[in-house]
Design a protein around this nucleic acid. Sequence first.
DNA 1: CTGTTAGCGCGTTCAA
DNA 2: TTGAACGCGCTAACAG
Lengths: 341, 341
Amino acid sequence: MQTQVTLRDVARAAKVSVSTASRALAGGGLTSKSTEARLQRIATELGYRPNTLARGLKTRTTRLVGLVVHNLTNASFRVLAEVVQRRLRAEGYQALLCITADDPEQEAVTIETLTDQRVDGLIICPTGRNGALLAVLEANGTPVTCVVRRDETVELETVLAADPEGAFAGTRHLLELGHRRIGLIVGRQETTSGRERLSGYRRALEEAGIPFDASLVHAGRYEPETGLAGCRQLLDRDDRPSALFAANHESSLGVLRGLAERNIVVPDDISLLCYEDVPGFAWQRPAISVVDSGANAMAELAADRLLQRLRPGAAPPAATAREYRIGARLIQRQSCRPVAP
Amino acid sequence: MQTQVTLRDVARAAKVSVSTASRALAGGGLTSKSTEARLQRIATELGYRPNTLARGLKTRTTRLVGLVVHNLTNASFRVLAEVVQRRLRAEGYQALLCITADDPEQEAVTIETLTDQRVDGLIICPTGRNGALLAVLEANGTPVTCVVRRDETVELETVLAADPEGAFAGTRHLLELGHRRIGLIVGRQETTSGRERLSGYRRALEEAGIPFDASLVHAGRYEPETGLAGCRQLLDRDDRPSALFAANHESSLGVLRGLAERNIVVPDDISLLCYEDVPGFAWQRPAISVVDSGANAMAELAADRLLQRLRPGAAPPAATAREYRIGARLIQRQSCRPVAP
DNA sequence: CTGTTAGCGCGTTCAA
DNA sequence: TTGAACGCGCTAACAG
């Protein structure tokens, strides 16, 4: 256990007081150029590394930012984690990764822990049941940015996907190809994205003058099994849909499986559109068309917003509780084709 | 910016000294049952939360553990991140997630930062070029556990996959099915896993008395493109192999694509065996047989080992520089079949 | 069993 | 421009 080099050691070696050393290394021009350079040199020679804890205790900042997601399996969360941690690091922050499994209780303890660690900020995909805790954080001066999901119970800066528009665009794309019976597999209606994607689907139908048929919609948990079940259910109908819109990303694998097990060929026998792009879709054959929800852009913007508020002289909390939406993009590949006339 | 409740506030409210309050809340039985309970109550009433930084400054522990991986795209890393963070949290630790992109320079600054944050321990998939830095950490009393890859330049506790055996078992499986020409797509030979999997493949061939044919091996970077290129190269031969072993996990997508674009049907036209199990393989149709390298077990063991050494009274550094291997498992699904007689 | 005292390493007053 | 002194909040000596 080698003892660490402290500021006092540096000061002693340079024959100055600790405070002078501190100022010199801070480099705010509060010391003469010469001593500044000299101390700089001695510090590196000695291998001095400031003690983050002592500094934090004094300055009340840790350069730590909490990053809370439900899991790392979902592509959006994965991208979020990668992008956020890269962006934070570029500005001298470190990400504290926490996984809640979409469980409010785990989320609660996570937020407590992060508070204890005195994080400077928080990027979180909320379950929606701990808004109060988040509000306390924000009120105490720790900026909180929500992503992917909104916490309805409280006003916080939030970065979301433009799910209503995305689902609308996707559905309209299928409609424009001539499809009239479009099966929809979508997320739980308790979630923002689940509701919003369904509403986008409905609106597109409405605009096209096609009556909404609830039996064409299969809503379920974010799992492959949901896709398989939905796929089977929709395929077993007498009036089988000519297109499937898998707007619950996790279910895509199950949908592909369901199609394959019935030897239904995409896009010859049925058109398939998925949601949230992942490399697998582009590498698939036929390559799967998708509505890209813009996970990258969401992550970047969330990082931007938080970092912005982390900078000195940030606006007061309440004034910034804005909501941002990342536009969705339709990426046409080879899994959708015009319906036979 | 609401001011935090400090230990002094609690002590004052209970009309005891700060140190008594500290002891009572620590709960080591160093105070009377009654005051302990009383302080406990008052603390929660006041919403007291200990200041991690002050405590860390004093105790020289942070209950922070660095977790360093190359990315979150690779399934093993993803599992590693999820498992490790869960295990750590269960023992009151927090994971500091860092991503190096397999870049030694980024790894170097990452290790420095983590050192500055005074992490209590480190779980890292090393690039192999910063062994010295890791050795310093370990020497200074911070346990370091390497996973997935070994840093050859230094002796550190390391948890690896049993890649030689895994590749051996996979290859032998194909041999037992009667395959004699087995194409191998494998990782870069600069990496441990790349080398070890190739050696396992060779050994299986050798035991079966089949001469090694270097032209059946395609080694490359950990990307889908590698699989596509390798697949094309192997498929364009006159004496096309009857089986493909995609032992570079990232390349699997590319292999599947390469097969599809030539309308080669698995397993009718060719057998396919992949490496590292992911849900996608099981959901695929036909379901892909794999050599499961045991990412979960690796993660659990790495967490175990580190936590073990984090507990008070851990063994001296040098004595514990052991290497662990997680056995691979062959999971037979539907992508391999006996070669036609 | 409890209170007093003394730092942990740093930034930041206040004087010089 | 520099130094001395103080305190951030906590734990751990040492007394009592």
